[in-house]
Simulated assay, not measured.
Amino acid sequence: MTSNVKESFGHSAPPAPAALAAKVRTLAPSMTRSMQRVAEAVAGDPAGCSALTVTGLAELTGTSEATVVRTARLLGYPGYRDLRLALAGLAAQQESGQSPAVTADIAVDDSLADVVAKLAYDEQQTLADTAAGLDTAQLAACVDALAGARRIDIYGIGASGLVAQDLAQKLLRIGLIAHAHADPHLAVTNAVQLRPRDVAIAITHSGTTGDVIEPLRTAFERGATTIAVTGRPDGAVSQYADHLLTTSTARESELRPAAMSSRTSQLLVVDCLFVGVAQRTYETAAPALSASYEALAHRHDPRSGRR
């Protein structure tokens, strides 16, 4: 595990049982191999592991008691006892049929009907995992910052850049000054102009995209409130984020790259941000939305003489 995990990350409320599997998928790539064995064991057999003592789980995974406790804490639980309770809850959900089995990866010879079914399941699971793992206290703090922001800069590259554009357009429609930057040079030159009361948002699934981290670092150093929307809360981007919003993704496969599922979870998070800000600024947001609807309707009205 890298050393740049925010100290506050481990002190938020323990994740609900339904969020445990998502937490394992999100954090496993950044764990040591021994911690990965513990995480994979508890996610793969929650019922069996919930019956084990810390010594028993250490023996099962060929690790140490200290590794088991560290893994529990990284997953968001104060100690192993709390993790066991979550495992028991997850096992009960699975037994009642509330947590369906994970579907197989998309194969090259799958029918289109199977592709549709598998993608739909994966998208639903990604959204459910992201919702279950989203820290609402962090989300509320982000909404507060955005609602009172003088200016908002949003950084994203590739698929994350499309999500950044989506959020910027939504915020513009409720009267906020927001701009999405996919060009890294333009992002940095704009970040230099940020000040306190401004907000900068970095969207990066990996948490290691340099072209996104650099403008966020600049904004952070200029005193702006900084937010990271990422699938890797222990990634380098967290060093410069005042607030972290964690996303989940489905398993990556040859025909389903990470950018597909990460985009789905990122869109959920930015929609939550937008709705929260619209609620908080309703007196000004509602008239702004109405004005934009009317302007677009007039633009496409054949009687207006414009296309």
Rank of each mutant, 00 (worst) to 15 (best):
V5I: 15
K6T: 14
S8I: 11
F9P: 06
G10H: 05
H11S: 13
P14E: 00
A18G: 08
A22R: 07
A22F: 06
K23R: 15
R25G: 06
R25L: 09
A28H: 03
S30F: 04
T32H: 12
M35A: 14
M35G: 15
Q36Y: 08
Q36D: 07
R37H: 10
R37E: 13
V38W: 00
A41C: 09
V42Q: 02
A43G: 11
G44K: 04
P46K: 03
A51N: 03
L57P: 03
E59Q: 10
L60E: 09
L60R: 15
G62L: 06
E65Q: 05
A72E: 02
A72M: 06
L75W: 00
Y77D: 04
Y77N: 04
P78W: 03
D82V: 11
L85N: 14
A86T: 02
L90W: 06
A91F: 06
Q93A: 13
Q94N: 03
P100R: 04
P100T: 04
V102D: 14
T103H: 14
D105S: 11
A107L: 11
A107Y: 10
V108H: 14
D109Y: 09
S111K: 04
L112D: 14
D114S: 12
V116L: 15
A117C: 02
A117I: 00
K118N: 01
E123K: 07
E123P: 00
Q125D: 13
D129H: 10
T130V: 09
T130W: 11
A132G: 11
T136D: 12
C142W: 07
V143Y: 03
A145P: 08
L146A: 00
L146E: 00
G148V: 09
A149N: 02
I152V: 12
Y155K: 02
I157P: 08
I157M: 14
G158Q: 06
G161A: 08
L162R: 12
L167K: 01
Q169W: 13
L171M: 05
I174P: 04
A180W: 13
A180N: 12
A182M: 13
A182Y: 10
H185F: 15
V188D: 07
A191R: 07
Q193V: 10
P196A: 09
R197N: 14
R197H: 15
A200N: 09
P215V: 03
P215G: 01
R217Y: 03
A219E: 01
G223D: 03
R232G: 01
V237M: 13
V237G: 05
V237L: 12
Y240E: 05
A241T: 00
T249W: 00
E252V: 09
E252T: 12
E252Q: 11
E252I: 07
L255W: 10
R256A: 10
P257N: 05
A259K: 04
M260D: 08
S261V: 00
S261Y: 00
R263Q: 13
T264H: 02
Q266Y: 08
Q266N: 06
V270N: 01
D271N: 15
Y282L: 13
Y282K: 12
Y282E: 15
E283Y: 12
T284M: 09
P287G: 11
L289V: 10
S290Q: 15
S292P: 01
Y293I: 15
E294M: 09
A295R: 14
H300W: 13
H300D: 11
R303E: 14
S304Y: 05
G305N: 02
